[in-house]
Design a protein around this nucleic acid. Structure first.
Length: 280
DNA sequence: CTAAATACCTGATGGC
DNA sequence: TGCCATCAGGTATTTA
């Protein structure tokens, strides 16, 4: 469940659980790697410490324990869920990481957070320093839900590129958190075709697009995210935002505003949905 | 063949 | 032209 709204929904679920049982008793790794190797020895040094907060930066989840902590990225198919105990019958072959949590640093009846990721495109890593200091030297762009991401910023950045606007807003170097679903949705709401070149966007269109990116992400968070395929929220219930999609996953169906048939085509390797009448 | 993401490779482009 | 840097698009990763 990987775009910003889904990650934020998971963060809120994790935060609630961790507040009740904040001590990291131990990690249990059932694989030594996901997308990258998992630095097990460094992570195990965190055993016994209290988790102070669960934060989100872009699509990353940051678990803070004092000055250090650990970081989780869900890739395409990563999910977190909680078990009341380590019941082996409830743990499957794609459950790669277990985190035992207790009310105190010694707790005989720990709860267990379980990370499942069939495709293993996710990341689990040690992390220290500040939020900007992510591993792999990733230079992340502004958060879309802050004032730093505004029409002036988007207008200025779009002058530097000649790519299709959809690829541009999905690029984590310009704005973070927008993936394939919310790129198509926000461009529909802004009335802009996904294939438009960035430099062709007017100042007014940049204003509209920044507003729609913010509003669609906020509405999706409020609805518990989009459940595509088998996505479940932290509590095992599906998100409901996909029921409100205007274009994503609706190819061949009637546009909800004008009844024109919604189109789909591949753009930079990703399925892209739009209404040829509502979007210019 | 499709899928919520992104790291890497390569060919294109542009500046000096 | 050439050399180097940057960009953008395609592909690989994996399982259901």
């Amino acid at each position: 469940m990987p775009e910003l709204p889904e990650v934020e929904v998971v963060r809120r679920g994790l935060e609630k659980e961790i507040k009740a049982t904040p001590f990291l008793l131990k990690f249990e790794f059932r694989r030594k790697d996901l997308r990258h190797p998992i630095p097990q020895e460094k992570l195990n040094q965190l055993h016994g410490q209290k988790i102070i907060s669960v934060e989100r930066r872009a699509k990353f989840l940051l678990f803070r324990l004092g000055s250090a902590g650990f970081i989780s990225h869900l890739g395409m198919t990563g999910t977190w869920r909680v078990l009341e105990n380590a019941d082996e019958a409830q743990i499957g072959k794609h459950d790669h990481i277990l985190i035992y949590l207790g009310k105190q640093s010694q707790d005989l009846e720990p709860k267990v957070l379980v990370y499942r990721d069939p495709r293993r495109f996710g990341i689990f890593d040690f992390w220290e320093g500040n939020v900007k200091n992510l591993p792999w030297g990733v230079d992340l762009a502004p958060e879309p839900l802050t004032d730093e991401f505004n029409e002036e910023y988007l207008f200025k950045q779009t002058r530097k590129s000649s790519r299709p606007i959809k690829s541009f807003i999905m690029d984590q170097a310009f704005v973070v958190g927008v993936g394939n679903i919310y790129a198509s949705e926000s461009l529909f709401l802004a009335g802009i075709r996904p294939t438009r070149r960035t430099r062709s966007l007017s100042q007014a269109e940049c204003k509209m697009l920044t507003r729609k990116i913010k509003s669609v992400l906020e509405k999706a968070i409020a609805a518990g995210g989009s459940s595509i395929s088998d996505f479940k929220t932290f509590y095992g219930t599906p998100g409901e935002f996909h029921l409100q999609h205007f274009v994503y996953g609706r190819e061949g169906q009637a546009c909800r505003k004008c009844n024109t048939v919604i189109k789909v085509k591949s753009l930079a390797g990703r399925s892209t949905f739009w209404c040829s009448r509502c979007q210019n």
